[in-house]
Simulated assay, not measured.
Amino acid sequence: MQKVRIKTGLFIIVTFCWGCFSCKQTPQKNAYVNNLGIPPAEMAILDRINYTQIKWMDSVKAIGNVFYGDTVLLNYVFKNMGETPLFIVEVKPSCGCTVASYPKQAIMPGETGILQAKYTSEGFPGNFRKFITVKSNTKNGVYHNLQFFGILSKDSLPHQNKTYSK
Score class of each variant (00 low, 15 high):
N75G: 10
V142D: 15
L157N: 10
Y143G: 09
G113K: 04
Y164L: 04
H159A: 15
T120P: 00
Q147G: 11
K135E: 14
H159W: 09
S156Q: 11
L86W: 05
N140G: 13
N127C: 03
F131W: 01
I132H: 00
G126W: 05
K154L: 11
Y164E: 02
S101E: 14
P93W: 02
S121E: 04
L146Q: 06
L115Q: 03
T163P: 05
Y164R: 12
G82T: 07
L152K: 03
N75F: 00
P109M: 10
H144C: 10
Q116I: 04
I114T: 15
L157Y: 08
D70R: 04
T138I: 01
A117N: 05
N137G: 11
G150C: 10
K118V: 04
Y164Q: 02
T133E: 12
D70V: 00
K135W: 08
S136L: 11
Q105M: 11
K130P: 03
V142F: 08
S136E: 06
N75Y: 09
P158F: 04
K154T: 08
M108I: 04
T84D: 15
I88R: 06
L74N: 03
Q147K: 09
S153D: 15
H144M: 08
Y119W: 03
K104N: 12
F131E: 10
L73I: 12
G126V: 06
G141F: 02
T84Y: 12
T120V: 04
V99R: 06
V142E: 15
S101C: 05
S136I: 00
Y102K: 05
K104S: 13
K118E: 10
L152P: 02
L86I: 07
N127Q: 12
Q160S: 15
K79T: 14
Q116M: 12
G141T: 03
V91H: 00
F149K: 13
G113F: 00
K139V: 10
S101F: 03
S156H: 06
Y164H: 07
Y164W: 09
P125W: 04
A117Q: 00
K130M: 03
P85C: 10
I114H: 06
G141I: 01
N140D: 13
S153C: 12
K104I: 07
T71C: 03
V142A: 15
N161I: 05
G113Y: 02
N161Q: 14
S153L: 13
P93N: 04
N80V: 05
E122F: 01
L115W: 02
F87W: 10
K92V: 10
G126S: 08
L115H: 03
K162N: 14
A100D: 01
Y102R: 04
T163V: 14
V99N: 09
G150D: 09
N127E: 14
F124L: 13
G141V: 00
Q147R: 08
I132L: 01
S121I: 00
D70P: 03
L73V: 12
I132G: 02
C95N: 15
V91F: 00
S153F: 07
T98P: 01
N161P: 09
